[in-house]
Design a protein around this nucleic acid. Sequence first.
DNA 1: CTGAAAGCGCTAACAC
DNA 2: GTGTTAGCGCTTTCAG
Lengths: 338, 338
Amino acid sequence: MNPTIKDVAKHANVSIATVSRIVNGLSGYSEETKKKVQESIEALGYQPNAIARGLINKRTQTIGVLFPEVSGMLSSEVLEGVENAAHDGGFSVIVCNTASSGKRTVKYLRLLQEKRVDGIIFASEDVKKEYYKIFEEMKVPVVLVSTASTQYDLPYVRVNDYEGAFKATEYLIEKGHEEIGMIGGSYQDPIAGIPRMQGFKDALQKHGLPFSDDHLTTNEGYRFQNGKESLPLLLKKLPNMTALFAASDEMAIGAMSAAHQLGVKVPEELSIIGYDNLKIAEMCYPALTTVSQPLKDMGQTAGEILVNLIKGEKKEAESRYMPFSIVERQSVSDLRDK
Amino acid sequence: MNPTIKDVAKHANVSIATVSRIVNGLSGYSEETKKKVQESIEALGYQPNAIARGLINKRTQTIGVLFPEVSGMLSSEVLEGVENAAHDGGFSVIVCNTASSGKRTVKYLRLLQEKRVDGIIFASEDVKKEYYKIFEEMKVPVVLVSTASTQYDLPYVRVNDYEGAFKATEYLIEKGHEEIGMIGGSYQDPIAGIPRMQGFKDALQKHGLPFSDDHLTTNEGYRFQNGKESLPLLLKKLPNMTALFAASDEMAIGAMSAAHQLGVKVPEELSIIGYDNLKIAEMCYPALTTVSQPLKDMGQTAGEILVNLIKGEKKEAESRYMPFSIVERQSVSDLRDK
DNA sequence: CTGAAAGCGCTAACAC
DNA sequence: GTGTTAGCGCTTTCAG
């Protein structure tokens, strides 16, 4: 067995209380005993038991992070940021893969409750009533990242999707495009779906460009396949389309792939702008112009907010809109050049 | 505060021992008291405290996973597999980002030791002496994934890199290529570096093809940039090169990107085969032919082995070579067609 | 079948 | 300065 505080106390000929004080950097002992105890700790290879500590402090120094999918490129960047902030704040992070399943999510939340995590980061999904009830039961702070709750007042860290989509569309318009299509998400998705489509529409309208259902395809997901399948549909509805806004980078790259297959040249015949700025955006050819979400920063910020909330330094959490920007690469051509 | 076992006992008018038995599904109580207790549990919303449990059982039902980089596409797929297996086995997983830093790794290992994790998964890095010493101190099982230890006898889950590289090269040769180059890793890297380069050389030799330093560039890392920078170098050394084996998909795609810029057509003028089969391999254009490592499966398998080790079902861990395969897509052309 | 009590490793009063 | 002691919430003998 690992040595305990008792063993150290015995070895150093002091009481366990003294050892505890020294280990925790409190006051109340002479330099002499301190040295003695530290030698004993060294000699025995003593490591304090965080479990016992947690039992008494009611603090586990651990947070839980829930993702709909841990291997997604979006999630993994956010996770890196969260892990970073947590670690800096002295916390460990338990990852949970909800697989977008309500049952799994509830199961995980219960687990995190039993494990007495000090806080939770909830990513990329809508907060259902069941979840919120558990949050309340747990009485630990919760921070949303890359999502927001339509019904509950929970702090979030995200970018303004409406604005991002609006700007992306305007960017295309500024480049001289007039027949612009969009590969969108779902009208059921209040987070990434509706706002991005609305931003698109409003930008067209503001600039006096027409919008109809022909300008848009909706999709269940935001994956490569969705984009790849959407492009031909969109092209059929809008044969003169010169530019395209995709609601995610994966979709944009899917569309690019479909374009290659159809012999449509990007960006010469079709300009494409994506959304997210995943690592792949700069790896594809032509490199994708896209709306950049500071994914890692978002994770980091969410982690920091949570840590502050746990430490009680901030009572009320401030939600944060993170700045987005348009990263210009090679997938959009300027029609005004001609 | 959350209700404790005491509260439940009081509410149900029984002793805490009885509640404990019922909660843990042990025997020794009447159906009647069981019902009574369950109602109390329900009424109070009681959740057993895993911390207190862990203190007494010396089991936290938690494992730690160390990655050199959590946002890498390789790591994130492995992580998903690990998380899956762990969850199925009733364990939670704490992720740790070592950032390839020895200091950070040691710090994390200490942390995991304090948190009393039941086991560790160590990914993609060589096991240094310092690490191994801590593993021994901790007395918990360790499983390596996507790496192996040259010095220590630790169970691992990985693919045979030498074989993978050998087959990839042979694949190119079978397609009629004779001037074949390689973008490799480092001779300092005994895991992914040397074996893949050796496999490449040996395959050339077996088929009577020449090999010299001109056929290879070495790199510090396996990233997109490394590949992108390597291609021009290689092309200068080996102007007649018709095919290329890259030691990672990222490098392959980097090379592809450089080829596009140089006006070299893939696969018409230059065939490229990668290594890993990341999700991006099918997203790029042309879709990348590559050596597939079953990343998620590897994580899953490593997780299962670790769980078995912890549960004591298997005393000695069997290391596992996972099967690789060549996924044919569009980045390699068949010279014999002409 | 059920309860009392010891104790997991530690912290935090409270004494001396 | 330092030690004693009472728990944290739970499991597990050991009695009854």
